[in-house]
Amino acid sequence: MISILFAVLTAVSNGTASVLQRRAAATAPEEDAMRFQLLRDLLRRPVWLGGIAMSIVAAVCQAVALATGPIAIVQPIFMIELPFTLVLGGLLFHGSRFSRHVWLAIAAVAVGLALFLMAAAPSGGNASVSSGSWPVALLATGLFLVVTLGIGLKVHGNARAAALGLAAACGYALTAALMKDAMARLDHGAGALFTGWQIYATAAMGVGSLFVLQNALQAGSLAASQPMLSIGDALISTSYGVTLFAETLRTGWWLVPQVLAMGVVLAGCIGLSRSPLADGMAENPSERGVPAAV
């Protein structure tokens, strides 16, 4: 229960961070994309710094969650970050009530996630990763990032936001796996945490993923980047849990409700992405010529 509680707190903190960072990044010059000048510009924006503060809170909560529960349980819970992000963004940018369509989509994400966890029933697993497993995982992750980042650099707008959002999701999933492995070293004392390479790799991947995410948020709407970030993080993290930490999921006929549950989640995400709630959240509705009601 502790891991679930802190996983929820992580999702809420990350959602808040995304909204604040989106508000700041959306007004940054487009020519700063994929350049460190973007971060220098954002560092001068209090709203963005507030988002970073919430990201730090999320990192602490995530560390506690991963140290007390399987990664295949903790990371999928982060899918609630999407509806929370859009609801908070709608309140911040529109300040109005939400339609029944929006609430049904939010319910679909929540119910689908609950059904998936019940059907998959992640359990077991090791607290740490065997040293021989990391090279293969890092190579596979590196190839995936090369492809997604390459696509992101070739396209523009929401397509770039989606590609970079998926790349960021992969980076954050790897960060979670590294963090869980690093936290396991605490069993040998606090000093062991800082003598292992995992904690430094966690920091490096976290910073790199943050940089990619800022570019995803700058490139297009949250409707394009956030679903890829939330669902991608959950699914990739689950694969890390199974392959690196030997966690188990139900198989056989249980795969049917798992697939159906993910379909419900996907339908909810699509519904949220198509709603005015997720359209141009950094803009003032009155300036865009559209009604504020969502």
Rank of each mutant, 00 (worst) to 15 (best):
L145E: 11
L145R: 06
V146R: 12
V146S: 10
V147P: 05
V147N: 08
L149D: 03
L149H: 09
L149P: 00
L149E: 08
G152R: 09
G152T: 11
L153V: 12
K154L: 13
K154V: 12
H156S: 11
H156D: 10
G157P: 02
G157L: 06
A159N: 09
A159S: 14
A159E: 07
R160D: 04
R160F: 04
A162G: 05
A163N: 05
L164M: 13
G165A: 03
G165C: 02
G165Y: 00
L166E: 01
A167F: 09
A167P: 09
A167K: 12
A168N: 05
A169E: 01
C170V: 15
C170S: 15
G171L: 07
G171V: 11
G171S: 10
G171F: 09
Y172R: 04
Y172E: 07
A173F: 07
A173S: 15
A173G: 14
L174S: 12
T175G: 09
A176N: 15
A176P: 00
A176Y: 07
A176T: 05
L178S: 07
L178W: 11
L178D: 06
M179T: 14
A182V: 08
A182L: 08
R185G: 10
L186G: 14
D187M: 01
H188T: 08
G189L: 10
G189R: 10
A190G: 15
G191C: 08
A192M: 08
L193N: 11
F194S: 01
F194W: 15
T195R: 13
G196D: 11
G196A: 13
W197I: 15
W197G: 14
Q198K: 08
I199S: 10
Y200F: 13
T202D: 03
T202M: 09
A203R: 03
M205E: 03
G206C: 06
G206D: 04
V207P: 00
V207S: 02
F211P: 03
F211T: 08
F211A: 11
V212C: 07
L213G: 03
Q214T: 13
Q214W: 06
N215C: 06
N215G: 07
N215F: 03
L217A: 04
L217I: 02
Q218I: 01
Q218K: 15
G220H: 04
S221M: 06
S221R: 10
L222F: 02
L222S: 08
A223V: 00
A224C: 05
Q226D: 01
Q226G: 00
Q226I: 03
P227G: 03
M228S: 02
M228D: 00
L229R: 02
L229V: 05
S230W: 04
S230D: 05
S230F: 03
I231N: 00
I231S: 04
G232K: 02
D233P: 00
A234L: 08
L235V: 14
L235C: 10
L235T: 11
L235G: 07
L235Y: 02
I236Q: 02
